[in-house]
Write a protein that binds this DNA or RNA. Sequence first.
DNA 1: CTGAAAGCGCTTACAG
DNA 2: CTGAAAGCGCTTACAG
Lengths: 342, 342
Amino acid sequence: MRPTVHDIASEAGVSLATVDRVLNGRPGVRQKTKDKVEAAVEKLGYVRDVAAANLAKGRIYPFTFILPLNDNSFMQALDEAVQQERLRGRIDRTQIDIVRVPAFDPAALAAAIDQVAETEIAGVALVGIEAAQVSAAIGRLRARDIPVVTLVSDLEDSARDHYAGVDNEAAGRTAGTLLGRFLTGRSGKIGILAGSLAVRDHANRLKGFRHVIETGFPDLEILPAIEAQDDSARSRAMVSEAIAADPDMIGIYSLGAGNRGLIGALETARGNGREIVTIAHELSDHARKALESGIFDAVLNQDAGHEVRSAIRVLKSRADGLDVIAAQERIRIDIFIKENLP
Amino acid sequence: MRPTVHDIASEAGVSLATVDRVLNGRPGVRQKTKDKVEAAVEKLGYVRDVAAANLAKGRIYPFTFILPLNDNSFMQALDEAVQQERLRGRIDRTQIDIVRVPAFDPAALAAAIDQVAETEIAGVALVGIEAAQVSAAIGRLRARDIPVVTLVSDLEDSARDHYAGVDNEAAGRTAGTLLGRFLTGRSGKIGILAGSLAVRDHANRLKGFRHVIETGFPDLEILPAIEAQDDSARSRAMVSEAIAADPDMIGIYSLGAGNRGLIGALETARGNGREIVTIAHELSDHARKALESGIFDAVLNQDAGHEVRSAIRVLKSRADGLDVIAAQERIRIDIFIKENLP
DNA sequence: CTGAAAGCGCTTACAG
DNA sequence: CTGAAAGCGCTTACAG
């Protein structure tokens, strides 16, 4: 049987309380006593039972997730993933509060952060918006020693502890390579559909995409980006117009949300005999159906559940003063085509 | 604060022991008492603290993993993943034994299974080999009510409880679509490199691949499969020869292990001005480097760690007599290209 | 600086 | 059929 604190205590000839002090690096133990305990730990190969420790501590980690009020499928999936983990809180001793703020509103986000900072909290996760006031609010949280993780969308210049999200430039490069290769031997133009290039994520994706196409696929030309604010009706209208206007458009990279409108436009185009190779982001139900029907050729995905769980793991580690194994927390860029749909 | 067994007991006006009996469906409780307890559970929204329960039970799940002694990278990764989980056993109360048997040896595997059946065990995971004697041995395990999960390689006709691995036919279809699309506009022949088509996994991959190419890419012709027993030197020689023999070979699908030899052959071919679009399986270090250098164009991967953890979750559920949510245990087919390498 | 005792939420003999 | 008490491996006041 594996050794317990009792074994350590009797081996070292001290009490349980002292063992606990040494094990948890609490102050008020003579060096000599500490040595005895450490020797016993070493000798018996003691490993702490974390579950039992948590039970005894009755410790609960109160975390707050600040999420945007956004109706696109991905943000909804993210919201649901957080709610899911919230329920699991009973078992993993987290107490997750969700605060929702208007989307794309830096002032609202900063205000929400400041409000959260007033509460008794062990960590905060939030979807970043690139803005000085947001960075400043994060700085104030960190000044109070509250761990902060950015989720999905980073704020590189802020004091956040960790970013739980995808490398968007790499995602753009991935899309570029796939689209370029799917169009092997053809020459023509590529349409870009974005929410807004003012959003760092979208800009980064486009940057990576552009780099790959320009350096690797000289027969393809990238058209100026269509910014449709991730709005479905708008996307549909603008993409339809662009397709009609340019018979040479043979591919589209949709790097934002708003896929529903895009799918409508592509279906219409297909009706008119135009098959356009398309790569989009986020495996929503719509995107899945579009893959199945051949309207989309590939979909890049980030797993919202993974991101949320990673954020929680990191916040817990931080709250416990432990280090994070960065490699283990890297969020993958999933590639889905019709054939490997999960 | 969330309710505990104490709250249920006082609400229902019974003792802790009775609450426990009802909660765990143990016999010897009057229906009327049971009703009272269940009403209290309902009313207070009680949810059991699994960690505390395990602590009290002192329960440990002794599982045995039977793994092939195989030096290919994937099997080594699998072995390491099991060792990893073995270490975590201290925290998640599993006690994992690893038994290693010669690879591709049905008699040895069957013997190992029978030997394990003699021990006090809560579940067995094993890498399947298609053979009647193996199925029979699994049947004997199940007859003793020991849960069995096949890992990586299934035995559909056996009595195993669950398969923790990838849908290999879908993997083949995925490879076919990618290769076909990467070769858009070109016509030529596709080489197939397999370990042995007697291995069901390899045969299934080829089946899926063939289906996609034959129905979707009429300009591509699949050459007879090269079976190199996953041996590096052999793979290298046979692939080199095949490339030299057929100037029309423009693509290769490598559906087994033995990638090192394949990479060597492709590098030589490249030196001779032959660029062959290649898709392989399993993201080993060699495969990763081959992606980075452009020798491989895509790699399909199954995550050994996921498979092992899924197997453990399923075995635990079975041991506890719980159902498994199949959708949650599905193992994904990961697509990696140079740009989305993790 | 150190220890004895109670308790976290559950389960398990044992007694009745 | 039901209950009182002890214990799982830890931590935490409290006392000294």
